[in-house]
Each structure stands twice: as structure tokens, then as C-alpha cells.
Amino acid sequence: MRLYELALARSGDKGNHANIGVLARSAEAYSWLCHYLTAERVAEYFRYLEPRKVDRYLAPNIWGLNFVLYNVLAGGAARSLRLDSQGKALASALLEMAIEELPP
């Protein structure tokens, strides 16, 4: 199962950092993702981008998990040599993450 089946997501930039807002599709999916989709797992998934660290914040009112990936944009909007210098593609990348089935 891919994260896409359990959640929506949107990403963007703040200087050289990026954030990915993940919004669970149901209350059950939200509690499973709070357990499964840890900051460590997201950091490991994006290891090729060499994040300095990844922080996770929870917004239970919207079944939201917000990930802040530090120093992943190789300099940010103006300075980065990468095409996705503003982290716009990170959300669609994260939605393809393989996720263990929801526990019954």
C-alpha cells in the first residue's frame, strides 16, 4: 500500500528548508500514520537529499502531520542547482512511500 491511499499531501519551501503537510484521509489512517510515519522514516526516505534533520508536528484537528526537512533544497530557490529548488515535488514523492497495511 502507498501513502497516497491513506493521505493527501502538499509541499513547499522556506528558504533552504522544505515542509510537507500530510493529511490523513480518515481518523483511523491518522492514528496509524502518527505511529508509522515518524520523522526518522521520512528522513530515511529522503536520505539522498541529505536532510540535516527532520521535525514532525501534529495537527489532530485536521488529521495533519507536518514534516519540516532542514537543508534539503541545496541552497534554496535562487541558489540550488536542482530543478526542484522549492521542494514542490516532495509531497508527490512522499505519497509513493510504501506503507504497511493498517492494522485491523
Binding site: 493527501l8 513547499g12 515542509n19 503537510g21 521535525d55 508536528y57 495537527a59 507536518n66
Partner: peptide, 16 residues
């Protein structure tokens, strides 16, 4: 609700 909550977390650090 879904379009609004997606945008609520757009380019945000600590949402609290």
C-alpha cells in the same frame, strides 16, 4: 475540507 486543510499546512513550520 480537504482543499482547505491541505493549504492550511502549506509552507508552515510548527502549526501551533
Amino acid at each position: 475540507i480537504d482543499t482547505v486543510r491541505e493549504q492550511l499546512l502549506y509552507e508552515v513550520g510548527d502549526p501551533a
